[in-house]
């Protein structure tokens, strides 16, 4: 085994990098699915492709998914994660659904601001339960507006 592979093995055995674990746990709550990121506090270049594959696969299997990703356990992320979130967002939109984010810590929120992605994603500042209510309310309002627009056209 070459030196760097030895080092990577040591890195994993120290528990710093948990590549084989489920990174996101999904729970359906009415019209919205919550995805709690359980990445052992770190989303970085080591586990980002697993994160993207897992969430992307779930989104493609569930057309029209309204997904709320809960970041409250995530202490760190790199730009590679932003790329995966953009892919997930695109997959959600293609399936007629949407992705929203909540419970980002201040540093992670700053990363979204620096990269202007706070303008692309709907990000709720509060915890998951509070964000879930706001997400559900916005869906009801959107549904009402659609219904009224049909009435107006008639």
């Amino acid at each position: 085994m070459p030196g760097d592979a030895h080092a990577a093995q040591r890195y994993r055995s120290q528990g710093v990098c948990k590549v084989s674990e489920t990174l996101v746990e999904f729970e359906v709550r009415g019209a919205i699915t919550i995805g709690v990121i359980k990445a052992g506090s770190v989303l970085d270049a080591m586990n980002v492709s697993q994160f993207g594959a897992q969430v992307g696969s779930y989104v493609r299997q569930n057309t029209g998914l309204r997904l709320l990703l809960d970041f409250h356990l995530v202490e760190y992320l790199s730009s590679a994660v932003l790329t995966e979130l953009l892919r997930v967002n695109q997959a959600c939109k293609e399936g007629g659904g949407e992705l929203r984010l909540c419970a980002l810590n201040a540093d992670i929120k700053k990363v979204f601001e620096i990269t202007n992605l706070d303008k692309l994603f709907t990000i709720y500042p509060g915890p998951m339960e509070e964000s879930l209510i706001k997400f559900a309310r916005s869906l009801s309002i959107a549904a009402e507006e659609t219904a009224w627009s049909h009435v107006t056209k008639e």
């Binding site: 070459p2 030196g3 760097d4 592979a5 080092a7 990577a8 040591r10 890195y11 710093v16 990098c17 970085d44 270049a45 080591m46």
Partner: peptide
Amino acid sequence: QFGSTMDAVGPVLQ
């Protein structure tokens, strides 16, 4: 200094 594999990034970063 290390060979360019993604596996090697973590230990060097830490």
